[in-house]
């Protein structure tokens, strides 16, 4: 019997190793193939210039329009989503703590919204734009993308905030804290690293999404100077360049993908750094 259990244990360990290996291998393969194809085309010119005439035929120019456009768009959308989503997550877990069933229902709907494909948000944003008589613009993109990432932001924060033990709330109330003081002074501090992670996750989704911005933000070779102008974005830039029959342009698509990956990497390193500073105050219950 004991022998059988040993074999069982070994089989499961082997399986877990195998699946971990597959995931790590897939990740390395993606990163490697992007870098392999993209790096040779990646130049300083590409990072610092907007497309010149003939850029999409392999002539000079760069993707600065898409880099800046993507940063504007995702920063804007993440900010809007945070301003709306963070109070929702606190409200669910501090003010509504007594109404478990209602909160469960809210979670269920947020999960449904999380599951809706981004193209559907894109189409919805498009109808909104028509209704308000707007043209494709950075603003329309920010609104659409923030709608798309709010459920992600709220649920990611909610998962962290709900791990705060009720005893910590009891302790703050016993010291005379109101509910908003408990939420913004205690729960926020306790969950700070997790909240940063939630913001990062949402930002990553925002900057990486092509479908929601396709109809709403449009595409242009210029760097937008106001919210009312359309804007290029990195995913669409990749999409358009990859669709070209010219090999050099296709390689630039991979170079754009490298840029996108590096932006996400920089942002996660920065957020790690900032959340570390608060990590030491977190109480491990």
């Amino acid at each position: 019997m004991a022998k059988f259990k040993n074999i069982e244990e070994k089989i499961f360990i082997a399986l877990m190793r195998l699946s971990t290996g597959i995931i790590v291998f897939a990740l390395l393969l993606i990163v490697f193939s992007i870098i392999y194809k993209g790096l040779p085309s990646l130049s300083w010119e590409m990072l610092t210039q907007t497309p010149k005439g003939g850029f999409y035929f392999g002539k000079e120019g760069g993707i600065l329009n898409a880099i800046i456009g993507s940063l504007y768009l995702s920063a804007g959308a993440t900010l809007v989503a945070f301003v709306i989503g963070f109070p929702v997550a606190l409200f669910m877990n501090v003010y509504l703590i007594k109404y478990k069933r209602f909160v469960q229902m809210v979670r269920f709907f947020l999960d449904l919204l999380w599951g809706v494909p981004s193209i559907v948000y894109g189409a919805f944003g498009f109808t909104l734009m028509i209704f308000f008589g707007m043209k494709t613009s950075l603003l329309a993109g920010i609104v659409t993308v923030s709608l798309f990432i709010i459920p992600i932001m709220v649920r990611a924060m909610d998962e962290v905030i709900k791990t705060v033990p009720i005893g910590l709330l009891e302790a703050s109330y016993s010291l005379g804290a109101t509910r908003s003081e408990a939420a913004y002074k205690i729960v926020l501090r306790q969950c700070f690293p997790g909240i940063i992670t939630a913001i990062l996750l949402s930002f990553g989704r925002a900057i990486g999404d092509a479908a929601a911005v396709l109809f709403t933000t449009g595409y242009t070779d210029h760097i937008p100077t106001s919210l009312g102008q359309p804007s290029a974005t990195l995913p669409l830039s990749i999409f358009f360049q990859l669709g070209s029959p010219i090999a050099e342009v296709q390689n630039r698509a991979y170079a754009s993908a490298v840029v996108l990956t590096i932006i996400i990497l920089i942002i996660s390193i920065l957020s790690r750094y900032f959340s570390k500073r608060y990590e030491k105050h977190r109480i491990n219950f």
Binding site: G167, L168, A171, S174, G176, I186, R282, I283
Partner: peptide
Amino acid sequence: RKKMGLLSQRPYPLPMN
């Protein structure tokens, strides 16, 4: 509530210094 200090089963220090 402020008139009543609470000491719980296990300590819940606040996440600060």
